[in-house]
């Protein structure tokens, strides 16, 4: 495969995008697990499908439509959560399906032959374009900078919002910022695993990492490494057997999680 990677641009892009996706998954995935925002992130991802549809309908790059929808919905979720008593779970349920419906509606408005949406729904890492790579690079760099530059503040915010507020931290800012980072992460992942499969890529690597350490930084680093290992091997398998890449990566990473959990529990049990 190495030879093929050097030879084909599309394989290079696939590898780059898998590596970048692993980085944001390790960081944001760890955070959403600790903050119980996994379903929220799934909701934002699905809402962005409306943007994909809008993009096709308006004939602009669908990923920009998705970005707009993801940002809009994440900011809306924070605002609604703050201003009303609506239960987050309910809110996600509604937005999740509304976003998907909008996408379907926009596509149905299009003249002629409808586009193939499956690469957005299930991801197709082998069709990642140079432009996709550039967008991903910008988003990943931004997420990494935002988290590392404010790491101590994030840690305080994530651990105890009220105490951080009392200490003078602008917790409002961190809440909005976190949701924006989740939206950006969703966009990075859409091309790799697709809207529907995103949550597994976000949760499995940090969940595996948590089996080994109680240190936030180490969890993030381990999660990134796990993400890289499994997304690259998933990519390799899908190339080898000509099977869908997004599904392969998710199945691999999910199986690995269950195996690891089982093994570590067994080991703990023995000792």
């Amino acid at each position: 495969m190495l030879e093929a990677i050097l030879k084909y641009n599309f394989l290079q892009n696939a590898v780059y995008s898998a590596l970048m996706a692993s980085v944001v998954c390790g960081i944001i995935g760890t955070i959403i697990i600790e903050k119980n925002l996994v379903m929220m992130s799934g909701g934002i991802a699905h809402t962005s499908f409306g943007g994909v549809g809008l993009g096709y309908y308006l004939n602009i790059e669908p990923i920009f439509g998705a970005l707009f929808f993801a940002l809009f919905s994440s900011i809306a979720i924070v605002m609604i959560r703050k201003k009303t008593e609506v239960d987050s779970d309910t809110l996600i349920g509604i937005m999740w399906a509304m976003g998907m419906s909008l996408g379907i509606l926009f596509i149905s408005f299009m003249q002629g032959y409808p586009p193939d949406m499956s690469s957005y729904l299930f991801g197709d890492i082998l069709t990642v374009t140079d432009m996709d790579i550039n967008i991903m690079l910008i988003l990943v760099a931004f997420v990494v900078f935002a988290i590392t530059a404010l790491f101590n503040q994030w840690k305080a915010y994530l651990f105890d919002e009220e105490f951080s507020y009392v200490r003078g931290l602008n917790t409002n800012f961190y809440e909005y910022f976190l949701f924006i980072l989740i939206a950006l992460t969703v966009i990075v992942l859409i091309r790799v695993t697709g809207i529907i499969l995103i949550i597994a890529l976000l949760t499995a690597p940090p969940a595996m990492a948590k089996l080994f350490t109680y240190n936030l930084k180490k969890i993030i680093f381990l999660a990134i490494i796990f993400g890289m290992i499994f997304s690259i091997s998933g990519l390799w398998l899908s190339y080898l057997f000509n099977i869908p890449s997004g599904a392969t990566i998710i199945l691999l990473i999910g199986t690995a999680y269950f195996l690891l959990t089982f093994i570590t529990k067994r080991l703990n049990f023995g000792s």
């Binding site: 530059a149 790491f151 200490r167 003078g168």
Partner: peptide, 10 residues
């Protein structure tokens, strides 16, 4: 920690 700790706070 307090607000205005700035970037890359240690």
């Amino acid at each position: 920690i307090s607000d205005g700790e700035g970037l890359y706070h240690n």
